[in-house]
Simulated assay, not measured.
Amino acid sequence: MDARFLAISELTETPSVAVVVDVMRAYTVAAWVFAQGAEKIVLAESLDDALALKARHPDWVALKDGPPAPGFDLVNSPGVLRSADLAGRTVVQKTTAGTVGALAVKDASLVLCAGFVVAEATARLLRTHGSDTVTFVVTGEDGRADEDLACAQYIARRATGTGTDAADFLRRAAGSRAAAELTRGMREGAHPDDVALCLEVDRFPFAMVASPEDSLMVLRPHVLP
């Protein structure tokens, strides 16, 4: 498998298969959303779009980066999500980088969204799909976020062989700028446990597949047999 690691700004053409990585925190949060029972996640283009979707569907749950805000039900924090009851719900998610990355590759034949918590399931799906080339979209810091790059490289290794040790990749992620800012309380809407939760490997047994549905980009969990 030929793995390419690109920032969102470096996407000059639509890849065939894309893995969009946002460890801290969009796709760790998305995995927790599904673990708490949600049916699907709608990836919103903007905060205004998220609020418009919420207005049209009052039973949907709106989630955003940063501090709580009028019209939004939850913040982008896995520590907060652990206590949310989302059974059967639809969640609308808008984040600074993660959702932007997925929407940037929405025309790819296969779009996976990932963090460490779904690494092996994502790698297994890539192995099953058998793609020759996979583009990993490193969403944070214009492709320089080491937690995202480390996770992308780890998944790429796992997709081509199962013997890769996660320790070095996790060490890089733990030493990243995002981890430091979350630990120091520099990002609003954070929980003290967020970094630890983002660095749990294979917490969940599903991959997350995004695809167009009724003009929306919708993320759903996918469990391989």
Rank of each mutant, 00 (worst) to 15 (best):
S215C: 11
A69Q: 08
A156W: 00
V61S: 07
T162Q: 13
G88A: 08
A7N: 00
L216R: 06
L197K: 11
T96W: 03
T28A: 13
A44R: 00
H222P: 04
T162Y: 01
L74Y: 00
R203N: 09
E188A: 15
A180M: 11
V137S: 01
V117R: 11
V20Y: 01
K64L: 10
L170M: 10
P15D: 00
M208G: 01
A104T: 00
V100I: 14
H191K: 07
F204V: 13
P192D: 03
R158C: 12
K94L: 03
D193K: 00
R25K: 13
E141P: 01
D2W: 09
R203Y: 00
G66Y: 08
L53P: 04
A50G: 05
A190M: 07
V19A: 09
L149T: 12
A166V: 05
F206Q: 01
L197R: 10
K40Q: 15
D73V: 04
D48L: 14
V29W: 02
V29N: 04
R184E: 15
D65S: 15
L103T: 06
S109T: 10
T139M: 12
D194L: 02
R177P: 04
A150Y: 01
D2T: 14
G98H: 10
S211E: 13
A196D: 12
G143C: 14
D2C: 03
R157I: 05
L112C: 12
L86Y: 00
A159F: 04
V61N: 06
R187Q: 13
G79N: 02
A156N: 00
L182P: 01
G130L: 12
V20F: 11
L112Y: 07
V117P: 13
P70A: 13
A50C: 12
A44C: 15
L219N: 03
T162K: 07
A102W: 01
P15Q: 02
L224Q: 02
T28F: 07
A123L: 12
D59V: 13
Q93Y: 08
P67E: 14
F5Y: 11
A55W: 00
P58A: 13
A50V: 00
R124P: 09
D22R: 06
A145E: 06
A52L: 13
T133L: 15
K106T: 02
P70R: 00
L43H: 10
A119Q: 09
L197C: 09
S77W: 10
V218Y: 10
F204H: 11
A87Q: 15
F206D: 05
R144L: 15
K40G: 09
T96L: 09
P205S: 12
H191V: 10
T135K: 00
T96R: 03
C198F: 11
V80Y: 06
D65L: 04
M1I: 04
A55D: 12
A108D: 09
M1E: 04
S131G: 14
L6R: 11
T122E: 06
A121N: 03
L47K: 11
V61M: 14
D48H: 09
R172A: 15
A173H: 02
D146H: 07
F169K: 08
I155Q: 03
V118L: 08
A152N: 07
C113N: 10
P58K: 15
H129Q: 14
V61F: 09
R171Y: 04
A44L: 03
F72H: 01
F136S: 12
T160E: 13
A210F: 08
L125K: 03
A145D: 02
V21F: 00
R220L: 05
